[in-house]
């Protein structure tokens, strides 16, 4: 932890060397998520609900997903550039150091520019919390917190998986974007609107629905199954298979060196 803070300080120091550049990139990064919000806003000017969810409810949902996604983008972004770390030998350097490899990749890059997205997520969530006609009890508030944590962990796990794919091929990594960027963008709506099939996929294959749809129904009072609030914790177990793929990848890397 102390070591991570050291890395953190260095990243912050480096970033602040280029303040103007930093703020432009923050703006750009913010725009990409802000336009998605604008899209939702325009849609709700025309339609007043979608599949039974109101504007505020959708914002609650998107706010949570966006917060989780931006936290993962910020702190797990080393895996996003992992293919280039392999290509330029940075991963060899990591293997030459007496520390855990995953830790070093995480510490290699902290993408502070996602702060704009994170703020947008917070603002949307805050707006929705105030506007949604929800009777805020402690378990409900806790559920929202667990959803944010769960989605951060889930997206980080997906970035880990994304990075691990680079061990096996340096091409075709693009399709992994569906599960990260795509899930963030399409996760703006409660997953039930995409139909039964998609919901099943998002429950049992990649557990997005466990951090989004199910606990959301509990928060909004559509379901009185209080145990739904624990689902985000179960979703965190998704890290395990991703980690296994990573281990296999490291093993393979060590035997092929490429």
């Amino acid at each position: 932890m102390k070591l991570y803070l050291k890395y953190f300080a260095i990243h912050l120091k480096s970033t602040m060397q280029y303040k103007a550049s930093f703020f432009m990139t923050v703006t750009g990064s913010f725009l990409t998520s802000f336009t998605v919000f604008l899209g939702i806003f325009f849609m709700f000017q025309r339609f007043h609900s979608v599949a039974g969810f109101s504007y505020e409810e959708v914002l609650l949902c998107y706010g949570i997903m966006l917060m989780g996604f931006s936290v993962a983008q910020m702190f797990a972004s080393g895996f996003k550039v992992f293919d280039s770390m392999i290509a330029n030998g940075e991963f060899d350097r990591i293997l030459c150091r007496p520390r855990n490899e995953i830790f070093q990749v995480l510490a290699f890059r902290i993408d502070f520019v996602r702060i704009g997205m994170l703020l947008q997520g917070i603002v949307m969530l805050w707006y929705a919390l105030v506007k949604c006609p929800v009777d805020w009890t402690f378990p409900r508030a806790l559920t929202v917190a667990l959803m944010v944590i769960g989605s951060s962990v889930l997206f980080s796990a997906l970035f880990l998986l994304d990075g691990s794919v680079a061990f096996f091929t340096l091409q075709g990594l693009e399709f992994m974007n569906v599960f990260t960027y795509g899930a963030n963008e399409h996760g703006k709506y409660p997953l039930s609107i995409y139909g039964k099939g998609m919901l099943t996929f998002c429950t049992f294959v990649i557990p997005y629905a466990l951090v989004q749809y199910y606990p959301l129904t509990y928060v909004l009072g559509r379901s009185d199954r209080a145990w739904y609030m624990l689902l985000p914790i179960i979703a965190c177990l998704f890290v395990v298979p991703c980690w296994i793929v990573w281990r296999i990848g490291v093993h393979r890397y060590k035997s092929t060196g490429s």
Binding site: M24, T25, G28
Partner: peptide, 15 residues
């Protein structure tokens, strides 16, 4: 001209 190609690019793409 800019110090931030990534920023310009993100802004342009977003808009």
């Amino acid at each position: 001209h800019t110090v931030s190609p990534r920023g310009v690019r993100l802004i342009a793409v977003g808009i």
